[in-house]
């Protein structure tokens, strides 16, 4: 019988921390989806040899400190303005790979104008959109993406769409714009969905490298602290409640100027 110490040897290593992930303990809550998606971006930028070429634009929200965790160039943007900042960076440095990383409060609320216009112009950037249906950072307030009847700190009796508006499907909106090329909705709660999400992010990066216009990858996510659940319960709640309203899959696969949408 083989002993554990004979298995744990450098030559048998099949999975570990990406070289581009800073060796530190993040500020994220236990079980937060942000950590998983940071890891995927670090792995892809490393595997695709893009470290020197990449500029990330960090949002305001829990991911405000993203620049502390991945060893690439970063720029922090004012709340919601990451697509505008990324526009400036990529237009002045067309040889760079530029991506924004934004929460749903950042992208769908205060930054709704910036994202729609960047996608409409077809800026050659990747947008990574972490939709956890809430303002995580500030204490769990309602976001434009909060589900109908969802309890948040500002909707203690649940979101009432008559009063608060309907949950915004940003991904469906940007899929209609001719500037976007690849538009998809993913998740990252199981090993299979994390691997699939990685393939989607890779395709988004490739499209940007091929200058096909804006690639937009939504990741339906959890905020277990804001939702007041354990991480495992939050994943289950997401599957049961978020996925029916925010169905997973590709919405568009084309290039800039072609408005072929899959739905």
């Amino acid at each position: 019988m083989m002993e554990i110490k004979d298995i744990i040897k450098p030559e048998n290593l099949v999975y570990g921390k990406s070289n581009l992930l800073v060796d530190t303990i993040s500020h994220y809550c236990p079980g937060c989806t942000h950590g998983v998606v940071h890891k995927l971006m670090a792995e892809l930028i490393d595997e695709m040899g893009l470290q020197e070429k990449t500029v990330g634009v960090a949002p305001v929200g829990c991911a405000v400190f993203a620049y502390n965790y991945i060893e690439i160039d970063w720029q922090e943007a004012a709340h919601g303005r990451a697509p505008a900042v990324a526009t400036g960076i990529v237009r002045l440095n067309p040889g760079k790979f530029v991506f924004t990383y934004q929460g749903d409060g950042d992208l769908a609320s205060i930054g709704a104008a910036e994202i729609l216009h960047a996608c409409n112009r077809g800026e050659n950037i990747l947008v990574v959109f972490i939709n956890n249906g809430i303002y995580g950072m500030t204490g769990g307030q309602m976001a434009p993406t909060s589900l109908e009847n969802m309890v948040t700190s500002t909707t203690p009796f649940g979101r009432d769409s008559e009063r608060n508006g309907y949950p915004m499907k940003m991904t469906e909106l940007v899929a209609q714009l001719p500037g976007t090329s690849y538009v998809t909705r993913q998740s990252a709660q199981t090993a299979a969905t994390v691997r699939k999400c990685k393939r989607a992010l890779k395709k988004g990066i490739q499209n940007v490298l091929e200058k096909k216009g804006t690639s937009f990858v939504e990741v339906v996510s959890t905020c277990n602290s804001g939702w007041k659940m354990t991480p495992v319960q939050a994943n289950k709640w997401m599957e049961e409640n978020m996925f029916p309203y925010y169905p997973l899959g590709d919405l568009k696969d084309s290039k800039k100027g072609e408005s072929v949408s899959k739905n």
């Binding site: 298995i7 937060c32 199981t190």
Partner: peptide, 18 residues
């Protein structure tokens, strides 16, 4: 199988296989 490492938000699991 590395499933545990893949889902870990804090990337604190290394996996070895023979």
């Amino acid at each position: 199988c590395a499933n545990c490492g893949v889902v870990c938000p804090d990337t604190c699991i290394e996996i070895y296989r023979v």
